[in-house]
Computed example of a mutant assay.
Amino acid sequence: MANYKRVLLKLSGESLMGGKDFGISPKMLVHYASEIRRAIDQGIEVAVVIGGGNIFRGLEAKDSGIERVQGDYMGMLATVINGLALQSALEAEGIYTRLMTALGMDKVAEPYIRRRAIRHLEKGRVVIFAAGTGNPYFTTDSAAALRASEINADVILKGTRVDGIYTADPELDPKAKKFDNISFSEIIRSGLSIMDMTAFTMCQENAMPIVVFDINEPNNLIRILKGEAIGTLVTNDSE
């Protein structure tokens, strides 16, 4: 068994689209809920940060004539919609959950309070963190790095549609080679992009390991938690 007791799972909003061009795929919701349930059944404490790119991305706001800060807040609200959808799917699996938001909206979610979030995790509830950090100019990657550090998570599990970190984009370069393990400093030297630099630096400074893996492959999440070498592990040089 891997030495993970508490994990933060980072999911992109785009991952919820499945084969659609936008929106939420019910099939993907069921898939993610069943993957998370396997982790809960193993006694792992699970927190989730989910993006909103399947609905709206703040960075796209300028193309719509929407001011950047306003667009970022729209993107935060999109993550709340995704959080509510994931919460519903998890509860359909019989999992107790709490949706916590960085923006006040007490009719649908709890406000984010660190001590309360940790207590929920200790009670076996899946905690979904929505609305990013509550501030414009910060991505959900940054929110994942921040929340993982705040709740003392053992690792960030970054679920993507590729099976790890490569020397180049494997969807564009068939000769790209996959890393099984890589250090933060090596990623910086190589110019590889796995998170925005704010999030990445926060993980590096707090010695927060990251596992980048294919979340769409059934059982990958539980295989990582059982100690299998799935995806790419990113750590500090000395680890």
Score class of each variant (00 low, 15 high):
R147Q: 08
A144G: 02
V234R: 05
I81L: 13
P170K: 07
V49Q: 07
S185F: 09
S183M: 07
N135L: 10
A153R: 01
F129K: 01
S15E: 03
N219V: 06
A39Y: 03
I40E: 12
V80E: 04
V212H: 01
H31K: 02
R161E: 10
D41P: 03
T235E: 13
N152D: 15
I55R: 00
I118A: 02
K123G: 10
A102S: 15
L9R: 03
I95N: 08
E239P: 02
E45W: 01
V212Y: 01
D63E: 15
K62L: 12
M202D: 10
E171I: 08
Y137E: 05
E186K: 13
N220Y: 00
V234A: 11
L99C: 12
R37A: 14
M195W: 14
G231S: 05
D214S: 01
A130M: 05
I182N: 07
N220C: 00
I156Y: 05
V48L: 07
E228A: 07
E171A: 14
L121A: 03
M76H: 11
P26C: 11
G51F: 11
V48S: 08
K62T: 14
P26D: 14
Y137P: 00
A130Q: 04
D154H: 00
F129V: 03
R147M: 09
F184P: 03
L99E: 12
A85N: 07
E67R: 09
V211A: 06
R115I: 06
I36Q: 04
T232C: 05
G75F: 14
L233W: 06
M1L: 10
V162D: 01
G132C: 07
Q87Y: 06
S64M: 15
A2G: 09
F179S: 02
A109E: 01
S25W: 08
L225V: 03
D21M: 06
